[in-house]
Amino acid sequence: MNKAITANKLTKKFGNFIATNAITFDVDKGEVFGFLGANGAGKTTAIKMLTGLSRPTSGEATVAGLDIYRHAEQIKQQIGYMSQKFSLYEDMTVSENIEFYGGIYGLKRSEIRERGGKSLDQLSMTNVRNHKVNSLPLGWKQKLAFAVATLHKPGIVFLDEPTGGVDPITRRQFWEMIYQAAEEGITVFVTTHYMDEAEYCNRISIMVEGLMVACDSPAALKSLHNASSIEEVFIKIARNKE
């Protein structure tokens, strides 16, 4: 079993509206997989199905080898999840957030202390451990949120627009954390609106109006569409569909 995620004709309808339309793809273990698409293309719906938060209308999928219909609860223990909007409790301190999430994922006190301490050290945030999260700059919050989402050493981490609005240096530090996680064998599933970041992924997929219209390595997509950047590929693909 070398696939972290498999999806076969995965579909979600809301009434007559098909948010995710029979998408088929897979993600290898240890891969950094970019999940791109315009606003409203169906990315969030797909992520919700893969993380066990929303039940598909039809189709199949497995995450960490587990079936998303039958094992939704087990899947939640095997993955990490971080969104741009909500991932940390703003009025708890840095340490409290780490303890809280470590507890939710069933880590022992000693594990939380050890891994949490190591993360804070790596992030150079030990000196702000007793500060409330809402007093931290956005870039720090996002890096901390990533550390918290991977504290329980999940097989797969889902990152939903983790770098929106973050300054350019922190944005790159964040990607270095992603690479490190990938080197440790964690599969990374990430969405972004920064097209340069798409280039850092092993493979990317592009969704347009519920359909997955492309899925390949950035280099292969650029050569297929005769484009010099992923931004160009993205605009060509999404414009053609309109």
């Binding site: 606003n39 609005g165 993205f234 605009i235």
Partner: peptide, 13 residues
């Protein structure tokens, strides 16, 4: 104030 934050590449254009 940040009219294009969180907006996809095409809508930004």
């Amino acid at each position: 104030d940040e009219p294009t934050t969180g907006v996809d590449a095409i809508s930004r254009k």
